[in-house]
Design a protein around this nucleic acid. Structure first.
Lengths: 133, 133
DNA sequence: CTTGACCTTGACGTTGGCGGCAGGCTTGGA
DNA sequence: TCCAAGCCTGCCGCCAACGTCAAGGTCAAG
């Protein structure tokens, strides 16, 4: 699979893929002519990366999940050595979401869309964490 | 109130305040010596701006709320002519939050923290919207 | 009257996630 | 045989929201 195909298959661009590669998020073989060559796996991986980026994570954040980017992301890869990092990141994500939700509700309230209460739990079961210096 | 005081009072920096000013989000009088002079109102305004920025809005987004940045933001300023814009932005915010929540849940599931269901309603009562070209 | 804390206006630097272009390979097909 | 497509490696550009000098003016305290 060459870069253009992968790009189409994942709804992104060749440029972005090269970028991910140099960020260490995906890897490629090289064909005799120097062209990048990807396997099927990579498409999934890229899609997962995109999911996370869309969620507002940075590439660095994403790289923390590097180990569990293959596979469904919504189905298993249980007990990884990246779990701790992942949990940290998850906590960060939760914080971020909570803040946005707070702002959203402030806004909605200001617009008279919410009755000045309604604290929707943004994160069902999640541990609390702070810094990871 | 001078810029340094305002900065401290709002937990931000003088630079940022100048930036907000040049973005048209806050205004200042000038003392005889050329120093910026703010009134108490502005502190509230700045805090509201910060709230929105923290929620992931851009300064441009925020400027859409310019009219309702004084006051509590969580208490009234009802029926404004900025409402339509505000509603649009709110929708965008909702989308953003929903995406992040989706990612969060994918993640949590991958980590075995969620039983592969649990779709927490990110936005209680919110209208749906798309583009605003 | 000098020091030091604060203020002023530029203007350039930074971080993230690419976009886009230059200049040069290689290919498949007419 | 030749073209257009697709690929390669740099490398500069861009947007946002400031950070960070630089090169000063101001002012109260000592």
């Amino acid at each position: 699979m060459r870069i253009g195909e992968l790009a189409k298959a994942t709804g992104t661009t060749a440029r972005a893929l090269r970028h991910y590669e140099q960020a260490g998020l995906i890897r490629s073989e090289r064909a005799g002519n120097g062209y990048r060559d990807y396997d099927e796996q990579t498409a999934i991986r890229v899609r997962n990366i995109r999911h996370l980026l869309d969620a507002g994570l940075t590439l660095e954040d994403v790289s923390a999940f590097a180990a569990c980017l293959d596979g469904d992301l919504a189905a298993a890869t249980p007990s990884d050595r990246g779990r701790r990092i992942a949990l940290d990141r998850l906590a960060v994500l939760d914080q971020r979401i909570a803040r946005q939700l707070a702002a959203r509700n402030r806004l909605a309230t200001a617009l008279g869309l919410l009755p000045a209460d309604a604290a929707a739990p943004p994160t069902p079961r999640a541990p609390k964490a702070e810094r990871v210096p």
